[in-house]
Each structure stands twice: as structure tokens, then as C-alpha cells.
Nucleic acid binder design. Structure first.
Lengths: 199, 199
DNA sequence: TCAATATTGGACTGAACGGTCCAGAAATAG
DNA sequence: CTATTTCTGGACCGTTCAGTCCAATATTGA
């Protein structure tokens, strides 16, 4: 994300007509790209990394996604939608304590030690990139909303602040995880914090 | 931090003798470098950025600091020492609630929206760089130790887990900050969490 | 068959990168 | 003075980067 964002062209999709049809799945390619960004961050991901992972030639890449930045932003949106949907499901299917279940899910995401793609990107890019910051804010806000909804309605005091605290606590443990601490230790700490400190 | 670390030469310092003496302050130069890394991260910081900020020629840079990586690690150590010392002072001079004072200090560091250099670097580099991960772990551990020491000894249950939770909560708010939320809003949330949820 | 579109893979560009090297000036100790 | 060391500024090198372009080929609708 080195400089401006002048060339944000997004080639509109063709509906039908003559010519060879597209032979790859755009959604699958986007998913693959998302995983590369998740593992390496934006700057450290090269176009060769992307085309290789997506199984596309350079030409198809640019014809389909425009440029690295726009693909990246699409990957972020895709990640956010998926993540929020997953977290909502965790909250709804939790048998015992939805707040704890959500914190556990956030602190140990499916990506493993890669952490949360959006938190990574906020750290790396948000201060210098408004669009990333905007997507990041929305994502964090959605997480807070889910916590707020999961908080026991019998105790309606300062719901927003409590939701924010739960969310921040879980997100904070991602740093521990990336620094190399084992997931089970973090899970235990989180459960303790939930039951002892933040009931 | 692209690949290995074969060339970690650190030119030992000269004590006296003939010849032109060094005309710049090595410690000040290190401090400047640290600030650049703090603002831009490791990968996004170029050698021109560094030499410009440090007021050194390229030649002096390499003669003094060896290479970008070693300088970076020194900057991290320097930051950690300063930060831990500062946090300790916050804890010791806090009139009312040292835990809250420490959380506030962590969540709104002197660097402003740049967040915490070490948390940034953990996010950016730790999964791919053992040395950074090691420095990061030590830093986080030191922070936890300070929280543990600041916890009211009249309530000695699960001190370690509580310290970890306070630390993670404060660190988690850094993501909110970087995403653009105003500092005072975060400070308020943190104070609420402290007094209402985590007394 | 023919026009239209998509595919590939690689050549290419211009820029930025980290790092090396050198020549010459400047400042010290003896 | 001389020897020694550090200073500067820029040239230079090999690599990597994002992005462009092209020629050849493949697959469709009409």
C-alpha cells in the first residue's frame, strides 16, 4: 500500500455472449488470495505469491481483479463477512456461556497463529490507509455488537463498555499468541478472566 | 526481514586513539531510528528513511550499526527498556489505582496512534522471526509482571491470570486506537471496565 | 466458418530496495 | 609534520517489486 489509490478500476463482469467463458472460480481465487494476505500481510505478499496461490496467470489476475490493492480490499471485506457470520454462529450455538465462547473463538481463530487478518491489517496499515481503517472499524464494531447482544439481559448496566472490554481482551490475547504462547494457556487465562473477573 | 541472519556483525567500539572522533551521538541516532520503525514498521522503512532521520551518511550507518536488521533489534531492545521503565514509574507514582493507571498508559502510549512498537512488530514479524518473537515475549512478560506487582495483595487469588487479563485488555485497545477511535473514548471504556468489571 | 472473448506464459519497464565501495575531506594523537 | 580514523556524498550492483504488453492458443455464440 505504498502510495495513492488512483487506479481503482474494477472490471465489471460479463453476463453472457460469445467468447471463451471464464474457466476459474472467482470466489475461490479471492479466498486463496485472502489466505496469502492472512499469512504474510499486504506488503510482504508479492504478485507471484498471489498468482501462484490463486492459480491464475498475471494477465488473468489483472483482467479480473484490477490491481493488488483492490483485490486486497475485497479480501478484507470477504474475511470480515465470513468472520462475523462465524462469530455470530458461535454465539448462537454456545450451550453455556456465549461470551466466553466468543472470546475463545476470537483469541484462537481458524487461521491459527496467523491471528485475525483484520487486526493484523489494522496494525500494519490502518494509520496510513483510510480504507483499511474504515473496514477495520466496521469489523470491530460488529464484534462489539455481537458481544453486546450476548450479554445477559438481566444485567443491563454499561452493556456497551462491557462488550468493548470483552472484545478488546480477546483481541489483546492475539498478540500473546503471535509472540509464541501456547493456545491452551491463553484459553485458560481467558476462561479465568471471564469467570473470576468479568462475570 | 526478508531471509536469514548471516551477517549480524556488530562493530565493537573504539575507546580512544588517533583519528577523527565520531561526530554524532550513537544513542540519539538509535532513538531516531526507533521512531521511524515505530511509525512505519520494519519492511516499510527504507534505508533512506533511516539515514535521513538519523542524520547519517549511508557509510557511517553501516560502519556503526552493521545492517538494517541489527539496528532494528537494537531499537526494539531500546524501546522495551524505556517502555518497561516508564510503565514501572507510572505504577509507582500512581496516587489512586496503579492498575488503571498502567492500563491507561499502555492504551495510549507516548507514540500516540502509532500504538506500541513491540506489539506492532509482534503482529508484523514475530510469526516469521524468532528473535523478534523472543523480544516480544520478554516485553509482554515484563508488563504482566508489573501488573502482578501492582495488584492489591489483599486479594491474592489468581494474580497471574488477572495480570494477564489486565495486560491483554490494555493491549487490545491499541487496535481500536489504530483503527481510528478517539483516545478519550477508549480511556473511558477502560476505566469503566476497571471499576465495574475487574475490581 | 468467423468473430469475440479468455486463457496462458513470458518478456519487458521503471522504480525501489538493501548493501557495497570509493575518493576525498576533516579531525584527532603522537 | 604523519598516521590514523571518521566523515560525507554519490556511484554502483544485483535483486525484487507492481504493473504492462504481446503473441499464441482455446472456447464459446452466431
Amino acid at each position: 500500500m505504498r502510495d495513492d489509490a488512483a487506479h481503482i478500476s474494477s472490471p465489471e463482469k460479463r453476463t453472457a455472449g460469445p467468447g471463451r467463458p471464464r474457466s476459474f472460480d472467482e470466489a475461490a481465487a479471492l479466498e486463496s488470495a485472502m489466505n496469502v494476505f492472512w499469512q504474510k500481510g499486504f506488503e510482504a505478499t508479492s504478485l507471484d505469491d498471489l498468482t501462484k496461490a490463486m492459480g491464475l496467470s498475471r494477465s488473468s489476475f489483472y483482467a479480473t481483479f484490477g490491481c493488488k490493492q483492490t483485490l486486497f480490499l475485497r479480501a478484507l471485506e470477504h474475511y470480515s463477512e465470513n468472520g462475523i457470520r462465524g462469530l455470530k454462529e458461535v454465539s448462537e450455538t454456545a450451550t453455556d456461556d456465549p461470551v466466553d465462547a466468543m472470546m475463545q473463538a476470537l483469541s484462537d481463530p481458524k487461521g491459527g497463529p496467523r491471528g485475525c487478518l483484520l487486526v493484523n491489517c489494522i496494525t500494519e496499515l490502518a494509520p496510513h490507509d483510510d480504507k483499511v481503517a474504515e473496514i477495520g472499524r466496521r469489523h470491530l464494531e460488529n464484534i462489539e455488537d455481537l458481544f453486546a447482544a450476548a450479554i445477559d439481559p438481566a444485567n443491563p448496566d454499561s452493556v456497551r463498555d462491557r462488550a468493548s472490554a470483552y472484545s478488546s481482551l480477546a483481541i489483546g490475547t492475539l498478540a500473546l499468541r503471535k509472540a509464541g504462547l501456547p493456545a491452551d494457556r491463553i484459553a485458560r487465562t481467558l476462561k479465568q478472566a471471564r469467570t473470576v473477573l468479568m462475570p
